[in-house]
Amino acid sequence: MTCDEVNELLPFRANGTLEGEELVAVEAALAADADLRAELAVLIAIRDTMQAEEAQSPGDFGLARLLRDVEAEARGPTPLAANDNVVSLTRLRIWQVAAAVVLAVGIGFTLPQFATSPEPVAGRDAESAVGEGYSLASGGETADFTVIFSPDASEREIRALLLDAGVEIVSGPSAIGLYRLNLLDSASRNDALEILSGADIIGDIE
């Protein structure tokens, strides 16, 4: 075995996968060459350092997402084709939606306090007063539904759900993660409401 061949195999001596004649040849070269032994020590140290590095993998959250999608696939094919009627959501970041939901919860506690002040208008309840006083930051038009998507919903899942329900996003996300949806021309409101309400990726719907 040539010197170059030994050099090429040295990383595999460092990771312990070398066997048979190749291992014998590399061991013989190591016994005869101090520089080669020093290089092996470096490679072993690099490997040890790399293996000691921890990576924060998706873990149980990733497994839950996987099993949910497997279930969804088992229920039937999901239309995945691009559709010009649907607003394109480019790379919806999980952390952004998660942050929006946290904000939504916080504001959910705060809203009732504001709803009672100023004086309620006669004939209106607190809920309608809140509806008047707070609007989405992105877009003021009316909408058929207002929803929050669950934090781990992927763009693909959202796109598939919107297609299935026959709705499109007309505004959002707001600062608290709300999306406003409108029915497409041919869609039925009741059918869309049923589909959206039953979807795992919808955290809340109005």
């Binding site: 990771n15 996968t17 690099i46 490997r47």
Partner: peptide, 10 residues
Amino acid sequence: TLAFYQDMTY
């Protein structure tokens, strides 16, 4: 990476 993280053979 495959050699040192995963200890794969060549």
